[in-house]
Every structure is written in structure tokens, then in C-alpha cells.
């Protein structure tokens, strides 16, 4: 059994568990899945700076921070105790594409050559961590949700704006990976 859990989980298992989070959260306390909201609550709790967007009762929404705290703990537990010794196996085509862009492909969840503190004060670090993170935080809030709030919760509730949002999430991703990323990796 534990061997089975250690192997990477197939998409239909992961998808089903993630999808079931929607009714679970609704039924255990009328909560709506939406993880990017945690970033807003952190702003409201730590530095509201008299901005009206952050003036609300964030304590009432604190369940969301418990939830993301759980995500952090859960990922830690999975890596510590359920790690697959084989590592992450991705498609050969992606490996050769990335190698052509001088990305050192390893068997970790993310390339250590990019996602390390050594890279923090380089142009690459600025781009991957600071600019990338900023676009995630600003973009999700402007869009009114992220992959969880729009793509999963919103579409589950048949909200057409969530379908539109999800299409633009994907479009942004394609534009980055197909057009901007190859150029960036050459320049940096």
C-alpha cells in the first residue's frame, strides 16, 4: 500500500481529490475554495495601510489561512515520508526543449539550478521569483481568483466569467512558455 502511495499519483486520482475539496469545504462550513484570497487576507492582517480593499474583517476569513497552512504542512509531509525515489519523470520532448534553453533538468520537483538562493540576486532570480510572483499576486486578484477559485470553484458553479478567466490563465501560460521564455533564457 505504502509503495502505491509513494509512486506519483495518476491524474484521475489527484483530480478527483482536488474536485472533492469543493463539496467538502462547502459542507463542513459554507466555505468557498479559493487560495489566492489567502494573499489578500495576509495583506489585510499584516499591512492594511488604510487601503479600503484591505479594510474588512479578515479574522472572519481566517479559515483560508489555516487551509494554506495545511497545504504547506501537507507538502512537507509528502516530501519527507512519501517521496518517490525515482523523482519527477517528465516527457522527453520537454527535457530536450528545456536543455536547448540551457535549463539543467534534474529529477526534483523544480530545477535546483534555478530555484536556489544562489540565484536570488541575479537577473534570472529577479525574473523567476520577484517578477513572476508579482504577476501571480497582482493578476489573480485583478482577475478575482486563481486556478482554484475560478477554474475549479467557479466553473463547478457554472460561472461563465470563470471560464473566461481560465482561458486567459492558459493563454498567458502559452505566451510565456512558447514566446517569452525562450527569448528570456537567451538574454539572461
Amino acid at each position: 500500500m505504502i509503495e502505491l502511495i509513494r509512486h506519483p499519483w495518476p491524474w484521475y486520482v489527484a483530480g478527483a481529490v482536488i474536485g472533492l475539496t469543493v463539496p467538502v469545504l462547502l459542507l463542513i462550513g459554507n466555505k468557498h475554495l479559493g487560495i489566492s484570497s489567502s494573499l489578500r487576507h495576509l495583506c489585510a492582517a499584516c499591512f492594511p495601510a488604510n487601503i479600503s480593499f484591505f479594510k474588512y474583517d479578515w479574522k472572519r476569513e481566517i479559515w483560508n489561512l489555516f487551509f494554506v497552512g495545511g497545504v504547506l504542512i501537507g507538502s512537507f509531509l509528502a516530501v519527507q515520508f512519501l517521496r518517490d525515489p525515482a523523482g519527477v519523470v517528465i516527457s522527453e520532448k520537454t527535457i530536450s526543449d528545456l536543455q536547448a534553453l540551457n535549463v539543467q533538468v534534474d529529477a526534483n520537483l523544480m530545477p535546483v539550478s534555478i530555484f536556489s538562493f544562489d540565484n536570488l540576486f541575479t537577473l534570472q532570480g529577479l525574473l523567476f521569483f520577484v517578477v513572476g510572483g508579482f504577476m501571480v499576486g497582482f493578476g489573480t486578484r485583478y482577475a478575482g481568483g486563481c486556478t482554484s477559485g475560478h477554474t475549479i470553484m467557479g466553473i463547478s458553479n457554472l460561472q461563465w466569467p470563470s471560464v473566461v478567466a481560465s482561458c486567459f490563465f492558459m493563454l498567458g501560460g502559452f505566451v510565456m512558455v512558447q514566446l517569452i521564455f525562450p527569448w528570456l533564457m537567451k538574454v539572461l
Partner: peptide, 11 residues
């Protein structure tokens, strides 16, 4: 915002 998030998501 959705497009911007997509760019950030990919990187």
C-alpha cells in the same frame, strides 16, 4: 488579470 497571472504561473 487572468492573462497576467498566466504569465506568472508559467514562469
Amino acid at each position: 488579470g487572468g492573462f497576467m497571472f498566466g504569465l506568472g504561473w508559467a514562469i
